[in-house]
């Protein structure tokens, strides 16, 4: 499903050269549940951004679902990102002026899906994530856990193959965090490939496999 070969990504920070990814080779099969762990600056987020096609490799190869991502142009990359990948962020990134349902529908709107289809698919995920009575509220009228559930609904409404979660419980209290984890793990059980960056060892341990990183390298 996801294949990285000798993948490298470096950043210039002042005069220094920082390795975000340093010669990483990685294979992730469809349907896996993986946690990515490591100290700050170890390259966890860079790995997630590369897999999510938000960032590009300096060298090496990235193959997503059989497609060589590096060789695609910008608009095909955007399309691939839209079709195959869902993002869940620590800070939710909901648009405050839109209702929960409108936020959830956003990726479908961008993809040019008909209003009728859009409403139907939004209704499905809203029901699945138990958000029916909150669908017409704006983000500032929702609790943290509800906001993250809306963000997850937005990530899965396009039925992606891969869900990338960057510290999804980082801004939540324990109970809400557990609630969100359950939602993510349920989605994984339904077949979605789940990659989750976390600092929390307890959460990391729930995954089938843990990728540990340090200084841009994947530790064996």
């Amino acid at each position: 499903m996801i294949e990285l070969k000798n993948a490298s990504r470096t950043f210039h920070v002042g005069d220094a050269l920082v390795h975000g990814l340093d010669d990483v080779t990685l294979h992730i099969a469809a349907g896996e549940y993986i946690s990515i762990m490591g100290p700050s600056g170890s390259g966890k987020s860079t790995l997630l951004n590369i897999i999510g096609i938000l960032d590009a490799l300096d060298s090496g190869e990235y193959i997503l679902d059989g497609k060589h991502v590096n060789s695609l142009n910008e608009s095909h990359q955007a399309q691939l990102r839209r079709d195959k990948i869902g993002f869940v962020f620590q800070s939710f990134h909901l648009l405050p002026r839109l209702t929960a349902a409108e936020n959830i529908a956003l990726p479908l709107t961008l993809a040019g899906v008909d209003k009728k289809d859009r409403e139907q698919r939004v209704a499905e995920v809203v029901a699945a994530l138990d958000l029916t009575d909150r669908a017409h509220h704006r983000p500032d009228q929702l609790s943290g856990g509800q906001r993250q559930r809306v963000a997850i609904a937005r990530a899965v409404v396009t039925r992606p193959r891969v869900l990338l979660a960057d510290e999804p419980t980082g801004n939540l209290d324990f109970a809400s965090g557990m609630e969100v984890m359950k939602v993510l793990e349920d989605l994984n059980k339904q077949g979605i490939t789940l990659l989750m960056v976390t600092h929390d060892a307890n959460l990391g341990a729930r995954a089938q496999r843990t990728i540990r990183m340090l200084d841009g390298k994947v530790l064996a």
Partner: peptide, 16 residues
């Protein structure tokens, strides 16, 4: 800025 970043993450191409 962050809204634009989000739209890109959700699959918006540059021309969009």
């Amino acid at each position: 800025t962050s809204e634009i970043g989000l739209l890109k993450a959700l699959g918006a191409a540059r021309h969009q």
